[in-house]
Simulated scan of single mutants.
Amino acid sequence: MNFSPTSDPQPLVSVVLPAWNAARTLGAALQSLLDQCPSSLGPVPDFEVVVVDDGSTDDTRTLLEHWRSTHLLGNRLRPVYAPHRGIVPALNSGLAAARGALVARMDADDTAHPQRLACQTAHLLDNEHIDLSATCVTFGGDRELAHGFAHFVDWQNSLLTHEQISRARFRDTPVCHPSVMFRRGCVNQWGAYRDGDFAEDWEIWLRWLHHGAVMDKQPEQMLVWNDAPTRATRADRRYAREACDRLRAFWLARWLEQNNPFHPLVWIVGGGRVARQRLAPLWQHGPVPAAYIDIDPHKIGNRVGGVAVMGRSALPPPGQCCILNALTAHGAAEEASQWLTQTGHQPGQFLIV
């Protein structure tokens, strides 16, 4: 692995951008960084772009050398050339080469809003208690053909405050990875990306949040998150449902151990097959299902794996149980959360998982 040395003053922000066979899209991503401009919140920060070429076999390296030789990004562009080892080693190589006190993420097939770096830098500099600043994103795809992913983007965009992000983190990854900017100290304190049988971005957010990281999201859409056919979430087994369920179970069990006053018992809203499969790995870590709560009369009264399926009236009163809302059908979890709130259960007493 090698990267380009520089004698320039240390930048405030390092944009870490892994690229593998990305010649078709990388130019647009770099152009969006070249086009950064001030916002009403502050100026464009001094920044560098650390592009990690993860052993590409297309024209990615040629494109990077063209950008360097023509000085399109001046001395901001710092390529890192590494053998192909995958996304996590590429990300960590980028972190190792990055010199900024703030680290912004971006992918080679996405584009940044012109004021993104200015806005996020100001957000972190003006709010010392915030460790990570994310933004809402624009879905860059066909909503009809990829309605599931589009709905996921809409869900992420609905989570703005730290409280919303923290409470939703066991449902799915609550922030868009290429939209984030975080303090270098987060890596020093809580660790870099980990390689394993799990989604590396969800794992790092779960780990950082578990250790007390404060995350906030700006409501403006500051990144176009393109839905490429080769996106890892479509093909990589680390993003498969089973891998996500195992990752959720590990960190959810640790959260419940520290925060559930009724540990190990939890009540599950959702008695269907999908909800049960979703939480099956959790029981291997210590928590115990007290009962499944459902509204389907054909399920109520049954026992699944020795656990009773009950109607909503059987749920203990507010303050007397810990609840996991595991419904997954579109709108079902939201309806159940509304019902729980209306019946007096406070948001801190139930989680959407």
Results as ranks from 00 to 15, higher is better:
Arg61Leu: 08
Arg85Val: 02
Val52Phe: 08
Val50Ile: 15
Arg68Phe: 02
Gly74Ser: 12
Val88Pro: 14
Val52Cys: 09
Leu72Tyr: 04
Thr57Lys: 12
Thr57Val: 14
Leu73His: 11
Glu65Asn: 15
Leu64Met: 08
Ser56Arg: 02
His71Arg: 15
Gly100Thr: 13
His66Arg: 11
Asn92Gly: 11
Glu48Pro: 07
Leu91Trp: 13
Pro83Ile: 00
Ala97Phe: 04
Asp53Ile: 03
Leu77Ala: 07
Gly55Phe: 00
Ser69Tyr: 05
Thr70Met: 06
Gly74Tyr: 02
Gly86Ala: 00
Ser69Gln: 14
Gly55Lys: 01
Pro89Arg: 00
Ala98Trp: 12
Asn75Met: 11
Thr70Trp: 05
Gly100Leu: 14
Ala97Pro: 02
Leu73Pro: 13
Gly74Glu: 11
Thr70His: 14
Gly74Val: 06
Gly94Cys: 04
Asp58Ala: 11
Gly100Gln: 12
Glu65Met: 14
Leu72Ser: 13
Glu65Cys: 12
Arg68Asp: 11
Ser69Asn: 15
Gly94Ile: 02
Pro83Ala: 09
Thr57Ile: 14
Arg68Gly: 10
Arg76Cys: 01
Asp58Gln: 11
Val52Trp: 05
Ala97Trp: 05
Trp67Tyr: 12
Arg68Cys: 15
His66Gly: 09
Gly94Ser: 04
Arg78Leu: 14
Val52Leu: 04
Thr62Tyr: 06
Val52Glu: 06
Gly55Met: 05
Pro89Thr: 04
His84Pro: 01
Asn75Glu: 15
Ala97Tyr: 00
Leu91Thr: 03
Asp53Gln: 03
Gly55Val: 00
Thr70Val: 13
Leu64Pro: 11
Ala90Thr: 00
Val88Cys: 09
Val52Gly: 07
Ile87Leu: 11
Glu65Ile: 07
Ala90Ser: 08
Pro89Met: 05
Leu72Ile: 05
Arg76Ala: 12
Leu91Met: 14
Ala82Lys: 05
His84Gly: 07
Val50Leu: 14
Val88Gly: 03
Val51Ser: 08
Val51Trp: 06
Thr60Glu: 09
Ile87Pro: 04
Arg76Ser: 07
Leu63Phe: 06
His84Leu: 00
Val49His: 11
Val50Cys: 10
Gly55Ala: 07
His71Tyr: 04
Arg61Cys: 04
Leu72Thr: 11
His84Met: 01
Asp58Val: 01
Thr57Leu: 13
Ile87Phe: 02
Ala96Lys: 03
Leu95Cys: 05
Asn92Ala: 07
Leu64Asp: 10
Leu77Pro: 04
Leu63Ser: 08
Pro83Thr: 01
Ala97Leu: 03
Arg85Pro: 01
Leu63Lys: 06
Gly94Lys: 04
Ser93Ala: 15
